[in-house]
């Protein structure tokens, strides 16, 4: 047989397998839970004392809400749970399930295999994340005083897709390095938890702010967080943040390909 490998068909096939699987269900349920919970909390949370109410008083409702949603909730949820969920067993799963010999006996290169795993994870995430965030926009707009800035909201969503790309690149490397799926997930979860800690605490000290600026999480929440200062959405800074997040991911992707290429399977 003399044919080119249908790369896009491979990716779509795996993408739909991810979406219509237990992990896709977990991701969807989790996401809707968060939207529901935040929508339920919103009317009363701003009346209570504490950090959240203080921020609501200091900044515009739109910015305060963005901070709560993106910086407070999603940057943690996406990076430590949802993104790892889609790729933690991408490579280790095929090894432990003894599917690797059958798959790699196909006319695909090892680089294509790694890119396929990453692309299908990213596509599955994007196809779930953006529509759910779209639904969230309509739910939250009615609840936030003055409504939500649609451009800022969706620009941040796109930065979060890029953040997921970074997280998945890291998790894919872990999956290539470890043999067991559970260890892969635990390692990914642990590493991402540590990585997002600095950004989660960036408003508390200069040292933590400086550390946060060394993580892609900071750039993903650049327009959504009032810390260290609010930033208006502009095209060049937006593209800059996007590029920076992607650049964070590339070394991990390169290392994954390098590791996988050298391996005896």
């Amino acid at each position: 047989m003399d044919s080119q490998v249908n790369f896009s068909a491979m990716i779509w096939h795996r993408t739909f397998r991810i979406i219509f699987s237990l992990r896709g269900l977990i991701a969807i349920l989790f996401s809707f839970y968060f939207i529901g919970a935040i929508a339920w909390m919103l009317p009363t949370i701003t009346e209570q004392g504490g950090v959240i109410a203080e921020i609501w008083k200091t900044f515009s409702s739109d910015l305060a809400f963005s901070w709560l949603l993106f910086d407070g909730a999603l940057s943690k949820l996406v990076s430590i749970f949802i993104a790892p969920l889609f790729v933690f067993d991408a490579i280790s799963g095929d090894k432990t399930g003894e599917r690797m010999p059958i798959i790699m006996s196909r006319p695909i290169t090892r680089t294509q295999y790694v890119l396929m795993k990453l692309s299908s994870g990213m596509l599955a995430f994007t196809l779930l994340f953006l529509p759910i965030m779209g639904i969230g926009y309509f739910v939250f707009s009615g609840l936030v005083e003055g409504g939500l800035d649609v451009a800022n909201y969706f620009a941040t969503c796109i930065l979060f897709v890029a953040l997921a790309f970074f997280c998945m690149a890291v998790c894919l490397l872990i999956s290539a390095l470890v043999k067991k799926n559970l260890v892969s997930f635990l390692a990914a979860f642990g590493l991402m938890s540590i990585a997002m800690t600095a950004n989660a605490s960036k408003n508390t000290s200069d040292a933590l702010l400086a550390s946060a600026q060394l993580t892609p999480h900071y750039y993903a929440t650049y327009f959504a967080s009032p810390f260290p200062e609010p930033h208006d959405l502009e095209i060049m800074p937006f593209l800059g943040c996007l590029v920076v997040i992607i650049l964070f991911a590339l070394p991990f992707l390169y290392l994954t390909i390098l590791k996988f290429k050298k391996e005896d399977l």
Binding site: I26, Y33, A37, W40, M41, I45, F81, D89
Partner: peptide, 28 residues
């Protein structure tokens, strides 16, 4: 049956229960 999915599913449910009480606290 598989350890991995058991861990992930039970962890997800535990997190939801954790967040539920935390959110209820935030609403006073």
């Amino acid at each position: 049956r598989t350890t991995t999915y058991t861990v992930i599913s039970s962890f997800a449910i535990s997190l939801i229960l954790s967040f539920t009480y935390a959110f209820s606290l935030m609403t006073g």
